[in-house]
Write a protein that binds this DNA or RNA. Structure first.
Lengths: 362, 362
DNA sequence: AACGTTCGTGCGAACGTTCGCATTCATTGT
DNA sequence: ACAATGAATGCGAACGTTCGCACGAACGTT
């Protein structure tokens, strides 16, 4: 291992100043004569000097590091936003001189909190990003208790005040439901998540609002709850399609794309043409959605933007010491209309190939 | 921010010893009288002492941190193994007291190397994990030059010597090709990657070996190369299916699941029953594979195991200073046989629902 | 009785920064 | 002409560890 590090002292010696002067120049805490400054920069250049991270952090009591941990996805699912979210966060962090530190996610609460505590006590991180936030999330309670900086991607209890950013899933569901209503649908089923799911409830609200706005009564037989897997979408849709005709839905809104795909399979097995005989929509806009037969209408979350915001916000809190406004920032998702909710047979047939053109709302 | 850190000196004072003694006890560099040791542990416990990371690293000139960066997946694809690979790596790292540091991937070579150089010079990492390694990878050259520890997930130039672990993609393709031959197929097409693709070439070899072993001549019209996208699989398969009957393939082996899905769509559009009229297989075994209609035969990479190995190996190199054996370790993937390569019509029809049972080879 | 050995513990220094205050020197106002 | 100002730089200390060596006591050996 080649360890030829140049230190501040080396630079200073070569530039003929004291090493503290160099430090201050680098931290912009001082104004030097043009001449001296040039000499110092030259020396830095020539020696290829890079400040030593641990020394700086030790003295400054700051780590320029942000901790992040997330629950692994189950073996039969892919996390559709992970890659983009992470990439967006590094880029935002790098721009301000920070890096991300990753650590394992523990489901056991005490182990989980111990992991956060250790990183804090060891001075390894200046703040955390939380995701997959649920009701009564113990991490939020803990970090608030310790007054340690964090920003959450996702909301928690409505009466808690903490810095967070979330996709307005309710808005997404409102948009797609309204879209279906405009197409003439009146009996719209929804494949939802369990009642404990905070994200699920937020989304469901948008559906209910859209219905009530135009005076369509809510039919609770059309709201089915499950674990968000493809199987559930498949079986639930079979169930819906075997309801007596007057109650049978003409459209199915799924809270994620996997359930929507299951729904499509069920419909196709029964000989229904998706988009014409039964409209189906998803959520997440996974890459595959546009390639399905027919292409799936879905809702795209502005993940890149969220990664940027979440990091900027956290660094602001770290560097100013004060959360500017601990309210939750909601960003709207985008409805992507494709053939699975086509207005009529013709549109559906035309867009049956992978190169189908898409309609993006907003 | 509550900053009530206890330091070594606090612990030492309370236990009535010098702080260096406490340090040595924690690092197991010393044997103490039972009595003293108990007092020290008690003090540590009572004060909730956690060693300060930056101080330790500064003195020890080690960061207990591993750097990792990977190319973001294009917007119309999901990285099917990212989540599991990362999770596996943190768990392995944590077990040995390390964490992972993530940083953005730059496509421009000089920027890319600058990122690696800065992390090294700043003393932020003790080693790197590389992935998406290609021929003549500049990162490998650079790190070897600097004699800085790293382990690659993936091979590079055959004549380069560096520590690496890779999935034996050739073996995977050998297995699936042989499987198809056993089912009676003789004209087996392959949807491959561009010639510059190292991974693609490794895999293709297995296909060629399997054919030559049973004396089937290679038909170059059946080897189509493209970018690994769904569209390519779709169009290539349409092309294959319009070949004159004697040259037309009865099976299509795709180098990833997305191309396989495209192939399935093309076949179905032409009214062919996948698994009966045309066998199709993929690679990666994405979660969706088992839910397709029919379920897709694919090849599963032992990602968890690779994450573990890659980290263990790197930490061994870091801690001993010597790469034990710079050869590439190849781990075999697993062939998952499903209905898309069913031996006959009956099997195919039976396994047409999401709950179809799977056959796992090896 | 004198002499190594081992055990348990302590001490001073160093890792490479940043921070606060002190110092030098030229410039300015009166 | 002299104190007061300000600009440019230097100095010592501190951050919390780990490392190498030294030291005294207890013990068995010659």
């Amino acid at each position: 291992m080649v360890r030829n590090r140049a230190t501040l002292k080396d630079v200073a010696r070569r530039a003929g100043v004291s090493y503290q002067t160099v430090s201050k120049l680098l931290n912009r805490q001082i104004r030097l004569s043009e001449e001296t400054e040039r000499r110092i920069w030259k020396a830095i250049e020539e020696l290829g000097y890079t400040p030593h991270y641990n020394a700086r952090s030790l003295r400054a009591q700051r780590s320029f590091t942000i901790g992040y941990s997330w629950p692994p996805s189950p073996p039969d699912e892919t996390n559709p936003i992970l890659d983009q979210f992470l990439q967006s966060m590094f880029v935002a962090a790098e721009a301000r001189g920070y890096f991300l530190l990753m650590f394992p996610y523990h489901y056991q609460v005490d182990k989980q909190l111990a992991a956060y505590a250790e990183l804090i006590d060891a001075g390894r991180v200046d703040g955390f990003i939380l995701s997959s936030v649920e009701y009564n999330d113990p991490r939020i309670r803990y970090l608030q208790d310790r007054k340690f900086p964090f920003v959450a991607f996702g909301r928690s209890n409505p009466d808690w005040r903490f810095p967070c950013i979330d996709v307005d899933g309710g808005r997404g569901l409102y948009d797609v439901t309204q879209h279906l209503i405009t197409l003439g649908h009146r009996r719209i089923a929804v494949l939802a998540w369990p009642e404990e799911s905070r994200v699920g409830n937020n989304r469901l609200e948008g559906y209910l609002t859209a219905l009530s706005e135009v005076g369509i009564p809510v039919d609770h037989a059309l709201i089915l709850r499950g674990e968000g897997r493809l199987d559930f979408g498949y079986h639930a849709t079979h169930h819906l399609l075997s309801l007596p005709l007057p109650q049978r839905p003409t459209a199915v809104v799924a809270l994620n794309d996997y359930m929507a795909i299951g729904a499509m399979q069920a419909a196709q097995e029964r000989g229904l043409r998706v988009g014409e005989d039964l409209a189906i929509s998803g959520f997440d806009d996974i890459p595959l959605a546009r390639y399905l037969t027919p292409p799936l209408t879905s809702i795209r979350q502005p993940i890149w933007e969220i990664g940027q915001q979440v990091i900027q916000h956290l660094i602001d809190i770290i560097e100013t010491g004060v959360p500017p406004e601990p309210r939750c920032l909601l960003v709207p998702p985008t409805l992507i209309v494709r053939a699975s909710t086509a207005p009529n047979a013709k549109a559906s047939a035309l867009s049956n190939s992978p190169s189908a053109k898409e309609v993006v709302n907003r």
